[in-house]
C-alpha cells in the first residue's frame, strides 16, 4: 500500500515537471518526485514488527529494520536539497538577466 502510494507521488511529480511552464514550479515538481522515491525506499525496508536500527544489547542483533536504505536516503535528501538550491540559483540569475521565468519564452538557443 505504501509503496504504491509512493510511486503515485513520484508520478505526480514527473507529470508536473513535464507539463508546467514556470521554472520554480518545475523545481517544486522535482522535489515532490524525490520525496516519493525516498518514501518508496523506506517503505520496502521491511519495517513491520521491527524496531528502529539502534542496538540496545550488543548480543542481540536481529529484529531491527534494515539500516542500508536509511543511510542511502539520508545521503539522497541532502544531495537533493543541494541540487535544488543550485537550480534555484540559476533561476534567480536568469531572471536578473532576462526578466522572465516562463520556459516557453526562452528562445536564446533557438537559432
Amino acid at each position: 500500500m505504501m509503496s504504491i502510494s509512493s510511486i503515485l507521488l513520484m508520478l505526480i511529480g514527473l507529470w508536473g515537471a513535464i507539463t508546467q511552464k514556470n521554472l520554480i514550479k518545475i523545481f517544486i515538481s522535482l522535489g515532490i518526485a524525490e520525496t516519493g522515491v525516498n518514501l518508496l525506499f523506506i517503505s520496502i525496508a521491511d519495517y513491520v514488527g521491527k524496531k528502529a536500527p539502534i542496538i540496545a544489547d550488543p548480543n542481540i542483533v536481529t529484529g531491527y529494520a534494515d539500516p542500508l536504505p536509511h543511510a542511502l536516503i539520508l545521503t539522497s535528501i541532502v544531495i537533493g536539497t543541494a541540487v535544488t538550491a543550485l537550480g534555484l540559483t540559476f533561476t534567480a540569475r536568469y531572471y536578473c538577466q532576462k526578466g522572465t521565468l516562463d520556459i516557453s519564452r526562452m528562445k536564446e538557443l533557438k537559432n
Binding site: 525496508a45 542496538i55 550488543p58 542483533v61 531491527y64 534494515d66 539500516p67 542500508l68 536504505p69
Partner: peptide, 14 residues
C-alpha cells in the same frame, strides 16, 4: 538475506 542484516550483526563491534 539482506546486506543490512550482515551489517547489523557487525555493528556492535564484536
Amino acid at each position: 538475506e539482506r546486506v543490512g542484516d550482515v551489517l547489523l550483526s557487525m555493528t556492535p563491534g564484536n
